[in-house]
Design a protein around this nucleic acid. Sequence first.
DNA 1: CGAAGGGTTGAAGTCAGTCAAATAATGTGG
DNA 2: CCACATTATTTGACTGACTTCAACCCTTCG
Lengths: 243, 243
Amino acid sequence: MDAHKKQTGESEAPAVCKACEARHGGICAALSASQLVELNKHSTRRKVEAGNEVIGQGESVGSYSNILNGVVKLSKMMADGRQQIVGLQFAPDFLGRPFLSESSVTAEAATETEICCFPRPIVERMVGEARELERKLHSQSLKELDEARDWMLTLGRKTAQEKVASFLYLIATHIDPEKSGGNSTTFDLPLSRADIADFLGLTIETVSRQMTKLRKENIIVIENNRHVIVPDKRRLRYAAGND
Amino acid sequence: MDAHKKQTGESEAPAVCKACEARHGGICAALSASQLVELNKHSTRRKVEAGNEVIGQGESVGSYSNILNGVVKLSKMMADGRQQIVGLQFAPDFLGRPFLSESSVTAEAATETEICCFPRPIVERMVGEARELERKLHSQSLKELDEARDWMLTLGRKTAQEKVASFLYLIATHIDPEKSGGNSTTFDLPLSRADIADFLGLTIETVSRQMTKLRKENIIVIENNRHVIVPDKRRLRYAAGND
DNA sequence: CGAAGGGTTGAAGTCAGTCAAATAATGTGG
DNA sequence: CCACATTATTTGACTGACTTCAACCCTTCG
């Protein structure tokens, strides 16, 4: 059957892609099978350990990539070292901006992360050819913009308590491996207290205090510092000030 | 000459557009002369007084528009009334998101503003036809995303003093009617103290106090509460923590 | 003139930051 | 597997930046 398709000029999606975590929903979903084959020829899977940079702020970008699993944090730093995480990216998000060689943020793996890397020229050619791909990139940008603006409200107007609850709620609704059947969830925090603090515009100590406060109010249960159980997502959402 | 062009099927840009403030740099720059004529047939100029809504949060959008002059603020509000301005838009920015009927923010004129309105269906058809237009919209989204993330750093990590300086610097570099020859500038604040507070995640009082502090440090001169003189933009930039 | 809205200023209170120390988790070499 | 070093997190006491509450000023407008 594969042979037949090849004879007629049609191509099947590469086997790696078929099994790919990011095949659907990601940028690749906007490509035809033959484009996928083309892209796949030059793409390489890469494991990035927690804490390693994917793209440096103001660095020239050599390649683009899709997140296959794990969490990538986007951050900005001031001259004096103050830092702010400006976004979190999950599978199957696309990293990088075709045609813009400079990145305005630093992208760093928050957890152990797997990415699928594409060389710059290939991606840029494909963006030119496949309109669907451009649309997909545009819509991801819009999604990121909405998230950024939501977070501005959190940073500017919420209390420390609400900020921490907002963060936990964000993770609960993004990591969520469908195990969330009903109103309860469970997950491992992808970020250290220091990262959470940088995301929320707080200090480590305040994050810690608010976590224990949420724990004492039975809104969350914490095991091993990283594992969190949310018995009732609505309560968490409420604590986050989301209604 | 116009007649000749019409005979050959070519068309000239409409007169209104030729004189338009947003003709260059704006979305219209991505359109051919004939598309411009087409769009112009259905577009209407509208004046919006300061304080009036252009698009409501969660409201269905009846039309899109270009800002011709003035400043539009994008804001979000929490259930209990706390508010955060998540973006400022200047001419020749485009307002609205083709194909998305719901807006996640409220757009309100901060100053008296003139906009050029286009009916939804026309814009959406054109986006489908003109790839250049789609690109332009995408690149405006990316610009807004960068601005949003810059502001996240301001909201999360800067002091009240730096926030106010950042705001003034932002305005100085955006209003800037080329009169800024060298290092000094002058402008009228497009936002009230209340709006500035909502933009910076502060209270009116804190904004006021920081303004007088900057005044006493001779970084700015204030006349009539709204008119600001910046003798040295570099000093303001420094006060904003931008290096 | 008096009312109303926007802006400034002052005094007191509070939330989150800072500094410091204790405790828990993680890793390393023996 | 243990003793130790190292790092991450929690907890406490104190400080300080920003908020809150309140009064006041100034301009505008009926």
